[in-house]
Each structure stands twice: as C-alpha cells, then as structure tokens.
Design a protein around this nucleic acid. Structure first.
Lengths: 127, 127, 127, 127
DNA sequence: GTGGTCTAGACCACC
DNA sequence: GTGGTCTAGACCACA
C-alpha cells in the first residue's frame, strides 16, 4: 500500500505525506478512517517514529487528517474552501517548472495532457 | 530576466537552472547564444560564483549548455535524442505528485489542463 | 587503502573517485558496504569535506554509490544495464589516445596486452 | 586530417599533440616531414597561434618533433631508447585507470583486448 | 578573459 | 549523526 524509497532524494516524511494524500484522493482512505498510530506506521515502514510524526503533523497542518486525543488520527472531511493560497501558488509554480523540464525532455503540451490522463485514470480507478 | 529568490526553500543553483531552462524553452536564449560568464552572472544575481558554476555544470550535464574553453558558456542545440530516461521518470513522478496535491487543493483534471494551457500560452508567447 | 596525491595534476576529487572505483572493482568495497562519511573521509585524507562531497556526488551520478538520508553513503549493486554511452565513448577515446602514447614510448600491442594482464592480475587478486 | 573539438573537455593543445602523435604513429607523417608553421596550423584549425605553439613546444620536449631555426618544424626520427620513465609511468597509470573505468562500464579483459585490436587495426591500416 | 578546483567555515534539513 | 548548500576568497590552466 505504501511506497517508501529510502534511497530517493525526496525526504521520507514527504513520501509518507504523498502516499496518504494519494490514498485519500483515491478514496481508499475515506473521511473518518483511522490511520495507524505513529509507532505502528513507523514499524510498518521501518522508519524512525519521528519521521512519521513529522508527516502526520504536516498533514494535520494541511487539514487532511486530524488527531483526537487518546483516540488516534483520522482522515478529515475535505473542506469546501481550502483556500490555502500559498500552497496553491507553490503547486502551480511547481507545475510550471515541471512543464518546462518536460519540455526539455521532449514532452510537449499534448503529451503532457496524455500523461495526466494516465494519472487520473489510475487515481479514479478505485473510488 | 532572472528571477532568483534567496529566501526560497529551493536552492539558488536550481533556481538558476530553472530560469535558464525557461528562457531556452521560450527561445529567448537561442542555440549558440552566449550566457553571462560565471562571474558576471554571479554579480548580476548577487550570488557567489561557485553557486553559478554549480548551476552551469548541471546544465552542461543535461546538455542544455556547453562551454568553450577560454571563451565562455553557450546554449546548445537541442539533441534529437536526449532521452535521459531517469530524468523522464523523475519528472513524470513529480507530475503525478503535483496532480495529487492539486487534487487536494480543489484542482481537478480540467482545471489542471487550463493551468497548463496558461503556462504554454506564456512559454510560446515569444518565439 | 586510499592513495591520494595532493601534488598530482589530477584533481583530488577525481583521485577519490578513482580510488573508490578501484576498490569496488576489486571487491574490497562490496555492495551495501558503508563508505566513510564525508567528514570522516575528509579528515582521513586531510582534505576539505567539500572535495569529498564532490567526489561522492559524481559517484552517485554514475550509480556506483548511493546515499541513504541521514544514514550515510553506500556502495550500490551494479546495474545490469548501466550503458551510459557517453561515458563509454569517452573511455574508448581515452584508451585510443593512450595506446598511441604508449606506441610512442615503445609499447606495442603485445606489450600493452601484457600490461593489461598485470592490471587484471592485481584487480582480481582479492575477491 | 586533424580532429579538433573546441567543445571537448580536453585542452585544444593536447588535441593537437594527440593528432600529430597519431599521424606519426600511422606513418602518415614520416621522419623529416615538415609540419605547417605555427601560424599556418593555427589558421587551418581556427585556433589561437599560442595554442599551436604550446603544442609544438610540448612535442619538442617529447622529442617527437624538432625545430630548425629559420627552416621550420620537422618530425624527428624516433629514438631507440626514449626512456622517459616519467611518461611511461604516467601512461601506465592512465591505462590502469581506464581499465577500471571500463570495468565499471561492463568491459572486461577480453572486451578491452578486442577494442585494442580495433585501435591497432586502424593505426596500422596505412603504413 | 574564461571556467575549474580547493579551502575554511557556516548553516540547514533530515533521520 | 548524515549529506547538501552557500559564502568568501584563493590559485590554476587554458585561450
């Protein structure tokens, strides 16, 4: 279920975040589903609990999960208006950077569209 | 011409790389155009020459620029078959991650397509 | 273990690269073995950490080593298909240049073969 | 006849040296043949005369060519005993380094032998 | 003039 | 603890 690559240049805590976001978007993790505890998750993934903790904190900050003291951590109901304009701006900048990079790698607009179709095809497969 | 943000979390040398890639894709920097020398660029950007040098070296590895000994650094002619499959895989993974992130921010497929149209509109404006 | 000659005309970071490649080919450094940390290696060789870092980064680009975040740097398992055709072309050009140079120094084909036998004898001694 | 690549990482003056050594070994340039003057060579190759001059000086130091004042520069008769042991040691070290590099690129002894056969095949073609 | 290498020393993110 | 980035300033080879 979780893809973690300790060799990757991407920090492990970010990979955990990405995994949970993906499972949530795919509706495999649904609102009010309980996440494994920090320690369970850490031993599942063979990583340091601090790393998992950092991921959970960031996800909480982004209102994707929330913690109930003494109960555990749960997937949140997506807000209608996230309006975290900083994150939007950053994401759109990243999108721009990647389009440029892909441009240099021979991917032009239509080819990028096709790749995105593929990604959505995968994301919406479940649900 | 160059947008560098010293306070950004993205390393300066990567920002330089991104800027040059963008200018090259926009055809503002054309093949055989001379880039500012390492020292010129460094003083333009108020940055250490080593930082510029690192950016140039990475761009050279990616065959986007090349150096002529004692003369300077020049934009290369795009190769017909670059195909650095590692870079392609990484870029497509980033694209996937960003689509998921944008999904959580309320951007679904059609909205992402519109954003990419905007990006291409900007890139191809010159030419 | 490591032969570094500060007065050599060959850059120190390249000498470090060559040393690690040799130890790896001799199987003295085996896959998953941990390399000394950048700082350890730097103090071992009485060299600046940045210089070691540059060597490690180049070795990583060549997929001979890889880093695990927060853990250190490790010898990689040789890929089945590395095939960096640029590096192969460059190496064969160097081989050609050296054969010509050795030709001028009185080494002809058979004598070069004998030298290579010696080199392989040394490389395969361990293992 | 001359292959010079100003984009190469190898200094131009070394490329000139390599070219002349190769032509000499192939016996296309024979003892007592006159080389183009520094200026002729420079304009032939579109390089700076200083660069050609540096190459000629190094070739003279290696006793591969010699200058007759007022007459020009000529290919020397190969000495029976070059005994430039420094150059021999350096060349054999380079040979070793390249064998190791080629080892990492999937070329083992027999394959290297084959490459050398190819090189000699090319060198001795003329004669 | 150009880029390439190296040092000493600092700060940071990640685990 | 690890590696990654950056600075300031030096020296060198090449053209």
């Amino acid at each position: 279920m979780f893809n973690i690559n300790i060799t990757s240049d991407k920090p492990i805590y970010e990979q955990i975040i990405d995994n949970i976001k993906e499972l949530s978007l795919k509706n495999i993790l649904k609102p009010d589903d309980k996440l494994p505890s920090v320690r369970q998750m850490a031993s599942m993934l063979s990583v340091n609990p601090n790393t998992v903790s950092k991921a959970y904190q960031e996800l909480e900050r982004q209102k994707i999960i929330h913690t109930v003291r003494g109960k555990g951590t749960f997937i949140s109901i997506p807000a209608d208006y996230p309006i975290d304009s900083d994150r939007i701006i950053k994401s759109l900048e990243s999108l721009r950077t990647i389009c440029i990079e892909l441009g240099h790698l021979g991917f032009h607009k239509e080819k990028i569209f096709k790749e995105i179709e593929k990604i959505y095809c995968d994301i919406e497969k479940e649900g």
